[in-house]
Every structure is written in C-alpha cells, then in structure tokens.
Design a binder for these strands. Structure first.
Lengths: 185, 185
DNA sequence: ACGTGCTTTCAAATCATTTTGAACACTCCG
DNA sequence: CGGAGTGTTCAAAATGATTTGAAAGCACGT
C-alpha cells in the first residue's frame, strides 16, 4: 500500500529547523552537517535511508556516510533494519537529555580535564619559583600562582557542573530542569 | 631604575597554560589567539604592549592588533596608559566571572534566540498542517510538532540557564558557585 | 608642517576543515 | 560466479578561516 513518501525535498520550515540546529551544533564544535542530518532524522516519523538524506540535504554520498558514522560514534543516531529493505535506515536518538549528557561527558570533559592538568602542572612549577631569593621574582611568582589558581578553580567548577549535568540527565530531564532552574534566588 | 623585564619569551608552563586556554577558547568558538593573548595578559604582573605580545607569542603585528581589538570588543581586555610611555599597553580583565557572563550574554544568547525563533516559526507552520483532512498527514504533523516542541523547550531551558548564569555572575562568583553546586541531591 | 614611532587595515598567502566523487568493498540474490 | 544495489574510504578539490606584512593612518613632539 502507498509506499511511504520519500521526502526528497524538505518542507521549508523543516529546512530552517535543521539549519538552525546545524548552526548551533557547529558552534558547539561539531560539524554543521551532523546537526542537519540529526535534525532531519529527528523530525522524520520513520527512519530514513542514506539516500533519503542525500537528497533532502543535497549532500554527496560520501558526506552522508561519514556524517552518519560520526553521529553513530556519538551515539545520537542508530541504525535500524527495516523489514524487507535492502538499504540501511537510520533513526535519531530522541531522548534529548540522554543524548546531551552523553556528548557532554565525552567531549567537554576531556578538554576540561586537559586544562586542569596543565594548570596543575604550571602551579607546581611556579611553586618552586615562589621560593626564589629575589623578592621581586617572588612577588611575581605569587601573583601568577594566584591567577592560575583562579583558572584552576574555574575549570574544576566547570567539571563539577558537567558532572552534575551528566549524572542528573542520565536519569531524566525533569530533575535536571529543577536542578538548573529551581533554585535561583 | 631597572626597566621592567620584557618577557620576550614565555616561561614554559606559561606557554602551556596559554595554549590550553587557547584551545579551550577555540573550542568554544573563538579564535585560539584570543585565548592565548588573553592568558598572557592575565598572567602578567603588569600590562603589556602589543610588541611584548608579538614577541612572546610569535605573532605578526597585524595579528596582535586584530586579536586585541577582538578582545576589547568582547570587553575582556582593556587598554591602559602607562606614565610616559608612548605605546599602548593592555591588561586582561581579571574578574573571571564578570567576563564569562558578559561573553555568554552576547554570544550564546543570540544563537539560542535565533534557534528559538526558528522553532517557533516552524511550529506555527506545522500548526496549520495539523488541521489537514488526511489523517495520515495529520499524524505526521503532530509528531513533528511534538518533537520541535521538545527542541523549543530545550532551547528555552538553555536560555533561562544562561540568564541565570549571567545575572548571578554579574554580582559575584560566590553566589554563582553556590547556585551551581550547592543543590545537587 | 614634518618625522618618528606605533597602530590599524586589508588584500594576498597560508593553513585547516569540509566536501566531493570515483574507486573499492560488501552482500544479496539469480 | 556475476551483477545490481549500497555502503565506505580516501585523495583531491573546494571552501572557509586565520595570518601575514606592507602600506596607510594617527598622534605627538619639534
């Protein structure tokens, strides 16, 4: 019966939405196409094939394949087999918070952790300099120590915040929202 | 009396710190050099001239000038006049939270706001489609409506969160830290 | 008004990322 | 086995971002 309509071309607002998500995502350091592809999948009532995506977003086959594999690696898209179809089909993870928390965990945390290590390393070096005989040099070392400590503290705060997001979001969105919004003065 | 030493070359851990901050900052969508320059200034006991920066970071004069003007535009660096010096000197904003909140405000909020608008527009278009005669089409429109609403909700949550950060941080770091960390289960 | 010292601008060059498309690989049938 | 239909890879091309450096601009002192 009436084969599913392949939306070879996106309806305008759909294009706009995927675009804006693409931008947002790019801005967060991913490839724009990841956002666009994910969004198209997210908005599609049924899973789509690579070819569908190729048409609706005007991408090359290679790009689609790579984007999908990126998205899978991030666990935000999954492969789906459809009864009697030869092609692979893909569906978006629709649990937004689960998705976000996973991504945060992987991505931001490594960066932040690197930073924390660098700060600690710098502090330990400075600590030696703080013992210098020259009071002038000592003062400088102290000031730098002070400031790097601030950065370190900030980074740690960031990490704890991420942890909070991640662990709360893993469970569900609701408590997260409360966590984030409930307690403003 | 002993002219201030111009640190033509950075001490290793200092370089590492500016680098890691550069990366972090890049990762947040700014230019790496913005992070590096800001860090060098932040760690310097006294304001530095464009030339100092040019040497310590091995940048061209043009790059330094542009980076500084970017940083000024973001309000994270300020120009400082030094008694009897012809050159301009620059100092980093050292109130980290104030800085962060300003940046958030400007930058993330516009992105998020754009997204919100796009989502709302899409919803209103879909809303018309939801009245379609064809029940099949109606179901699809409903599903999409549902999902875009989720995105919208998420974006709004993000915006409120940013607002929270911004308004809290404007005052001071302390309450912010408590806001973020105090209330985890 | 001119020269000096410094800063800013901007077109061209460089460097990095993303995209393409053609070649290869796999799988499912006949 | 062979071929059709798909999926993946990868080197080359396109695009996009950043950096350079030379030239133009400014401001100050003479």
């Amino acid at each position: 019966m009436a084969g599913r309509d392949k939306p070879r071309t996106l309806w305008p607002a759909e294009a706009a939405v995927s675009d804006v998500v693409g931008r947002l995502i790019e801005f967060w350091g991913f490839k724009r196409n990841m956002g666009r592809v994910w969004t198209v999948l997210y908005l599609s009532p049924e899973p789509l094939s690579a070819e569908d995506l190729r048409h609706s977003l005007k991408l090359s086959s290679g790009a689609v394949s790579m984007t999908l594999s990126d998205l899978s690696r991030w666990g935000v898209v999954r492969r789906v087999w459809i009864q009697g179809e030869r092609k692979d089909f893909y569906a978006a993870e629709i649990q937004l918070w689960r998705m976000i928390s996973r991504v945060f965990k992987e991505r931001e945390k490594t960066e932040v952790t690197l930073a924390i290590e660098a700060f600690e390393e710098a502090l330990s070096q400075l600590d030696r300099a703080r013992k210098s005989a020259d009071p002038e040099a000592r003062a400088r070392a102290n000031l730098r120590y002070e400031r790097i400590s601030q950065l370190l503290e900030l980074a740690k705060l960031g990490r704890r915040l991420l942890d909070g997001l991640v662990s709360t979001a893993k469970v569900d969105a609701e408590p997260l929202a409360r966590f984030l919004l409930g307690q403003r003065s």
